[in-house]
Amino acid sequence: MTVRIVVLAKQVPDPETPPSQFKIDESTNSVIPANGVPPVVNGFDLNAVEAALRLRDSGADVEITVLSVGSDFVMDAMKKPLAMGADRLVLVDDAGLDKLDASATVKVLAAVIEKDGPFDLILGGRQASDWDQGHVALGLAEVLGLPLVSLVQKLEMDGASVSLQRVIPDGYQMITAPVPSILTITNELGEPRYPNLRGIMQASRKKPEILSLGDIGLTSDDLAPRLELKRLYVPESNRQVELIKGEDEADSGKKLALRLREEKLI
């Protein structure tokens, strides 16, 4: 039996963009794309792709669909999961879909999953590196009425269920979840694999399946935000560092300790 997996993925500005190049257009409350730094698939979503691929490596017959909602997709970025080994790429691509809040994103994803499903596992990254939230997978579980386990660092198919390790502050929980379930994957799972040349060649030949809002029976009126962004800005840092300079580096270390004592910090 083929295990159908859908991995939720989001295109985000590269979080490795140097701070000096991170700029915001306050008139539109949006990030100005940094010159020469293309967007990427959210790193935690690649952990989720990796989790799905590891199920395949362990011998399960899996079909991996990557699903994203947005606009202005950069195909070189979005095809990375295909190059890693995913089978399909489904993009809901329409104007304004890159600005949805979590509640609207969940409505779009739920509509696609109901149309394209059923799926056995829905995997997402623990959070996205743009809005730093991680609400979408949790909300999707509520809307679809599916079991949810967050922060998964390891998963194995076990007949009609999945055995999971869920990260907690000082260790992990062992959890059994039924199929279908929604899981969020955390970076403790391990680094996503690098695509090999064969994967890149195969990905370049695959065409993404592109859907509009109309294709899934929604209009922009269905997607009113629950949270309205009023202002986005880079905070001013007013901290002034006091650099401790000794005669040499060893002396600097000594003087640093003495300075901290002077401030009654140690």
């Binding site: 560092v241 650099l243 401790i244 300079k245 580096e249 002396d251 270390g253 000594k254 640093l256 300790a257």
Partner: peptide, 26 residues
Amino acid sequence: FKEARFGVVGDWEKVLPSFLATVREL
């Protein structure tokens, strides 16, 4: 260094041993 209140610009391998020794003395 934009976030820190105190800083040493240097190689930790040279800075840390004397820092640790002074902390221990204090």
